[in-house]
Nucleic acid binder design. Sequence first.
DNA 1: ATTAGCCTTCCACTGGATGGAAGCGTTAGC
DNA 2: GCTAACGCTTCCATCCAGTGGAAGGCTAAT
Lengths: 271, 271
Amino acid sequence: MAGGSSQPGRSVTSKILAILSAFETSRRALNLTEISKAADLPLSTTHRLVGELVDEGILSRTGNGGIQLGLRLWAIAQNTGRQLRDTARPFVQDLFSLTGETSQLAIRDGNMALYIDRVYGTKRIARASRVGGRLPLHATAVGKAILAFSEDWVMDAYLEQHLEPLTPHTRSNPVQLRNELSRARHNGYAITREEVRLGTCSIAVPVYHTGRLGCSIGLVIPTSHAANMERHLPVLYGISKRIEAATAHIPLETLLGIISGPDMNVPGREN
Amino acid sequence: MAGGSSQPGRSVTSKILAILSAFETSRRALNLTEISKAADLPLSTTHRLVGELVDEGILSRTGNGGIQLGLRLWAIAQNTGRQLRDTARPFVQDLFSLTGETSQLAIRDGNMALYIDRVYGTKRIARASRVGGRLPLHATAVGKAILAFSEDWVMDAYLEQHLEPLTPHTRSNPVQLRNELSRARHNGYAITREEVRLGTCSIAVPVYHTGRLGCSIGLVIPTSHAANMERHLPVLYGISKRIEAATAHIPLETLLGIISGPDMNVPGREN
DNA sequence: ATTAGCCTTCCACTGGATGGAAGCGTTAGC
DNA sequence: GCTAACGCTTCCATCCAGTGGAAGGCTAAT
């Protein structure tokens, strides 16, 4: 039929999000047809919605017919979790200055580690993570630190899921991972060795907030000089304490922008 | 009438943007009624749309009934202008390390300077700008640098507008400003002295991209030791050249995420 | 007990959203 | 130079998703 019916159960909101999600993965500009496919929407609908979004500044057109995310969206989104980023950034910079290694700050978003900030030098290194990017909690040092120092139910819930391996070294055995996390909790830090990508290792420590885990900070180090990563622990602990002190006065929710990851936010479980 | 009519001429898209825009200014969480007022929408409509946006992860609820921007939106938006930020950041950090002063990178977004990145130390300073924030081009050093080193029509168009003063020192006289910009172009850098807020001065230089202005970098310095800001020029020029070299291979559009600010993008004018 | 503020639910109505189809401009193939 | 392929834009009859006033519920303050 011409017009009318649409896909029942799809609100305009969800269609708009579907369009935005098309840009969640791809870094380059997309054309209308690609967006249409990615969002699973008819071309004409995509055309109209994209047109509106461009007018609003949410999307923008490049010269050669490409479409990409607009600056307005970026500017609005900068308000998210601003308190944590603005407060913690100088300390993450300090961490980088003192160690010379790529420094990261991550929080838990559902069952992924979400990278909030990242400080690195000019030398080109292979990057697996990026600000705004996510990696599985069990594969990264910051993720392991989050798991190891969260309340027990977080780790328990996480270990019931399939542990996708990213490299041959990724821990995919729940029992093995649980042991490692217990050791991490006992030692006070977590490490990974080529578990995200070959050639890089990482070490991370938790950052507390009002007695509970708030986020974690860590270093990414090329395997070539990752023999004694623990040498960086004093600095990591020092920076962690500094961030803890600097953020102590901010309510946790304001800090993170969320209460807890949706996937693992089992209401009533924390009692 | 019950239901139906709605406000003619308002698409769902525009309503969603109106809701998001409510967060463009305020830094704290808002409640439903506040959003409803800010977006100029009926409470029930706001309720439904906000509910959908929360389900999608675009917004998120805080514990006490507040609503704020969600992490998913932030994560998606991080892809905007990523190339420029990712590439330039180490250099902006360098700028901070070498000068010890708050370092900024800005581009032109319409007739505002949009702050793309910002590196600063732990000491609390009064902040007028923030990443994702905008300030008038004529009041800031990065803005003046952008005006002074853009094509002529940009400056001409800008000077026809009202020049809103932010402090008693802000240049609000077009003739005076034009002279100052000419001098800046001749000298190769721009400065402001307490023109954004009392107590801070700034100095900035342009960063070129394929022969045209791409963005600008600058320092914000407390008036107390801003006597000889020009001492930082060698570093500023050095970093500018480095950024220019590092971004040379990236197409300008990919870099900025936009062709040019909508307000001043007069088609055909550049011929 | 009353008021005020805020959130949530309900539902009859209708206009904005819809998407297939056709048109158009550009590029690619032969 | 003709045809085909591709991608973007416009059109419009159809109709259901979106709408918002009203009513109800909950909590906190008076």
